[in-house]
Write a protein that binds this DNA or RNA. Sequence first.
DNA 1: TTGAAAGCGATACCAT
DNA 2: ATGGTATCGCTTTCAA
Lengths: 354, 354
Amino acid sequence: MPSQPQATPGTDGRAAPPRRYGHRPTMKDVAARAGVALKTVSRVVNGEPGVTADTAERVQDAITALGFRRNDSARILRKGRTASVGLVLEDIADPFSSALSRAVEEVARLHGSLLFTGSSDEDPAREEELALAFCARRVDGLVVVPAAGADHRYLAPEVHAGIAAVFVDRPPAGLEADTVLTANAAGARAGTAHLIRQGHRRIAFLGDSPGIHTAEERLRGYREAMAEAGLPVDPSWVSMGPTGPDRVGAALAAALAGPAPATALLTGNNRATLAAVRRLRALDRPVALVGFDDLEFADLLSPGLTVVAQDPAGLGRAAARLLFSRLEGETGPARLVELPTRLVVRGSGEVPPA
Amino acid sequence: MPSQPQATPGTDGRAAPPRRYGHRPTMKDVAARAGVALKTVSRVVNGEPGVTADTAERVQDAITALGFRRNDSARILRKGRTASVGLVLEDIADPFSSALSRAVEEVARLHGSLLFTGSSDEDPAREEELALAFCARRVDGLVVVPAAGADHRYLAPEVHAGIAAVFVDRPPAGLEADTVLTANAAGARAGTAHLIRQGHRRIAFLGDSPGIHTAEERLRGYREAMAEAGLPVDPSWVSMGPTGPDRVGAALAAALAGPAPATALLTGNNRATLAAVRRLRALDRPVALVGFDDLEFADLLSPGLTVVAQDPAGLGRAAARLLFSRLEGETGPARLVELPTRLVVRGSGEVPPA
DNA sequence: TTGAAAGCGATACCAT
DNA sequence: ATGGTATCGCTTTCAA
């Protein structure tokens, strides 16, 4: 960590830069300048009653003259609440996370709170490090998108001490807390059922690694839909693992080869969907595709991409609302909110079986 | 702002929830339990030398037993530095902002700093509110993507007090500070020159509102390229304003109508590009298109979208590096960094003139 | 209406 | 090696 910078005066005769570190006026300085007590300054700054207009004006003048700004660190130390919340995401750079983040920010703003954000990159250790760092700053609450495989018992002392925690997109492990999830199984079931309605009987599913909650739920939904329709699932059609282009490409090739080639495909997340789209382009064979999670320009592809859309902003909003309800005193048992998905039909999922 | 929550004991005979707010152990508590002085606990917690292994272990045990976590608010109050920086964006939900944010986060992490983020929505008042709120939390530094029309003199007292400020994507107004920009004019000139090389002579430019720095620079680059090629610019080809679909649609229609219809188009930002793509789809006439700023799935469109790509992550990285160099004591004059753009050829910009 | 003093939870400096 | 005490800048409490 960098050490406290010091303004080093110039040694060459030219004027040193006028930057004077640590020279922030305090309430004490303002009080001295206005000729009042520190407490009076505090009253003016916080709009508390019991100050004559005349005194208030003198104080205001001193504040302006000195460029005083209240030090919230000190205020926080006294008051206990920090009016800030921490948000741990998988990766702020991806659209799901950033939409969720924006929604949390919006709700936080309504409640006068500032937002710490950090990306875990799906690494449980990093998630913990971030969450605890936020807690050390005494955030009032935490919204966490759990990293795969994280164990949330590390948060027990924090929660016990009164920090509210809400989990989004995936449930917490080893801890009871408010949770907001997408109806993953139901969504995958709906997407699969849609393909079945188009006449497909051999449908592949390419999902994220087992161990990731959303991946498993979506797989479950897929299997349920197939079972409901009385359709068998050939093992070669199902592949779970990292959703990089190479693995998805290989899995897709496998699903389309063999004696019972799939004629349709449900992809378990955005990366898989994109990898599949690119791969299918190179093929001459038409394959129906439904993707889980929407893409911003899905309508501009040809054919348009049919998706099971999630509502990342809705997830964030719901999570933040749960969080602030806790901060406002709500003390009931942990709540679970599930947000429905929406099937958006655009063309790629309506390709008939070959 | 919500008031301090109080655990209200149940009045109906059932046990009240066991949540006990404000019951955080302090170093004092740990010291008492371990039978040492507070200062010794501080030494252990901060890994300072001068503690026997035996004592350290006793302290560690007490820390674990009590679930102690250092209160960074108090620490900050003493130390002066908060190991946190504030990032004011236009809208964290858009890809440009979120990519930039991620890069800033990465650099901040290397320096042991946490990140406050907030979206200004292009509203100067909101930008100021956010920046000052971050400063009140005594962030060590600020990275700001200025809102259009913002006047940054409000930051003068903060900068004077030693808070480092770096501006990204647009220059600050009324304040000298480190700034990181995209080479907007050069990029637009390159994009326009590319269209000219394809044989186009009537090229339209649809940009964002005048008053937005990037919009004006890109317009300038467009005009320069046209002038260099000795091509006149018909007023009907140029339109600056909000880049919503309706206005862009109307502007595009105007540019393609008239006695000297444009055969190619440079769009000044992502929203304009998307609006144009949608609009051009509906036309039967082929129009060449180069967009300023890349889109994630630009290669999946047909034709692929030719763009002048910016490097949002590079901007964020450069800005954060400047920031931390200041925090490490760098005291020279304000620096300006300009990042080049990259022309990415994918098809839409290589459509020949009608 | 105004002010003096105590304290929030840590760190820094000086003793022991 | 360990401990005591002042202090960071503010809010709280109680007195004037």
